[in-house]
Amino acid sequence: MSFTSRSPLRRRGLAAAGTAAVLALTLAACGASKDPSDASSMPGMHHGSASSPSASATGTPGMDHDSMPGMDHGGSGDGLADAKDGYRLTSDVDQLPADKAGGYRFRITGPNGKPVTGFAVDQTKRMHFYAIRSDLTGFQHLHPTMAGDGTWTAPLSPQKPGSWRMFASFTPDSGPGRGKGLVLSRTVTVPGESKRSPLPAATTSTEVDGYTVRVKGAPMAGMAHPLTVSVSKGGKPVTDLQPYLDTYAHLTAFHEGDQAFAHLHPETEVNGDHGGPNLSFHAELPKPGNWRMFLQFRTDGTLHTAALTLRVG
């Protein structure tokens, strides 16, 4: 039978089937047009902060109002590599003198192999630099200066003998990595007799400079989880925390054994010198085990650093 000789009933059936197929395709297209931003709407899941662009490496630091509080600004990964996404942390320094202050010089090179000189502002700084000994002692959080050729110098305090890891946390403001937070690291040796300090047992509270810091929450590896930090003094809640790096507290964590890096910020909105006593975080720590937490906060112009060990399941 030819196509033109089909019965009216057969033709009506074919038309209905065609209409159904078109409807199915339309529905599928509508489903595919869902806003892609929904994929990153879960708190604590976005690892690359959007930072404000810099005009130059030596410009006046600004405030990063676009970054979401509670996020990990260290980029995806654990910070243990010296290269990621075409960016590399390079340095000629393999050793540093023991018990002596000095400068650690380094560069960030881009996918084209040339030194990067344009960095976005994140928490009022274009570069955050961390030094930690292999036993998770000697924590230093610094903000190095950059020369015109892209060489950064971090002014390290005296370090004890042993193996140290140097972390550079930054966001390029141009090129293929623009707007993406990255953390790269290298190790250096401080010569001399090295005595490893045992990691303090996991706890929910610690004291520093007369302040008591308590942590409430039970983070699970690889999952965003609420974490609350409270600060008190003499048994009374502290309500005069001052802004530090555009927030009321700066929280850095390192994993026992491999020194994996994590960086978290409180969700609490900054409102003058009235921070505390409670600071809320969305913590996402990538690995189970013990993490050494370093909480930095400011009162009366003085910066305090509290350290405690947190167990992550």
Rank of each mutant, 00 (worst) to 15 (best):
G192L: 04
E193D: 11
E193S: 10
S194W: 07
S194D: 11
S194F: 15
S194V: 08
K195I: 15
R196A: 10
R196V: 11
S197A: 13
S197M: 12
S197T: 11
P198C: 14
P198V: 08
P198R: 04
P198I: 10
P198D: 07
P198W: 08
L199V: 00
P200F: 15
P200H: 15
P200S: 14
P200R: 14
A201D: 01
A201G: 09
A201P: 00
A201K: 02
A202T: 04
A202L: 03
T203H: 04
T203W: 00
T203M: 00
T203N: 10
T204H: 09
S205V: 00
E207L: 04
E207P: 02
E207Y: 02
V208R: 05
V208E: 02
V208L: 07
D209E: 07
D209S: 15
D209Y: 06
D209A: 09
G210M: 13
G210N: 12
G210D: 08
G210S: 09
Y211L: 10
Y211E: 06
Y211H: 13
Y211Q: 10
Y211T: 06
T212M: 12
T212D: 13
T212Q: 14
V213K: 10
V213P: 11
V213M: 13
V213D: 05
V213C: 14
R214M: 02
R214Q: 14
R214P: 06
R214I: 02
V215P: 01
K216G: 13
K216M: 11
K216T: 13
G217I: 02
A218G: 04
A218T: 10
P219T: 13
P219M: 15
P219Q: 13
M220R: 14
A221H: 07
A221E: 13
A221W: 08
G222S: 02
G222P: 00
M223P: 01
M223G: 01
M223C: 02
A224G: 03
A224K: 04
H225L: 01
P226W: 03
P226Y: 10
P226V: 11
P226S: 06
L227I: 10
L227C: 13
T228G: 03
T228N: 06
V229A: 05
V229H: 02
V229Y: 11
S230V: 00
V231I: 15
V231R: 01
V231S: 02
S232D: 15
S232N: 03
S232H: 03
S232T: 09
K233Y: 09
K233W: 07
K233T: 02
K233Q: 05
G234T: 12
G234V: 09
G234C: 14
G234F: 12
G234I: 13
G235T: 09
G235P: 06
P237N: 05
P237Q: 02
P237G: 04
P237L: 02
V238C: 05
T239I: 07
T239H: 13
T239M: 05
T239F: 14
D240T: 13
D240S: 12
L241C: 03
L241E: 04
P243Q: 07
P243E: 11
P243H: 09
P243T: 11
Y244F: 15
Y244W: 14
Y244I: 05
Y244N: 03
L245V: 00
L245H: 00
D246T: 08
D246L: 00
D246Y: 11
D246W: 07
D246N: 00
T247H: 03
Y248W: 06
Y248S: 10
Y248D: 11
Y248P: 09
A249M: 12
A249P: 08
A249N: 10
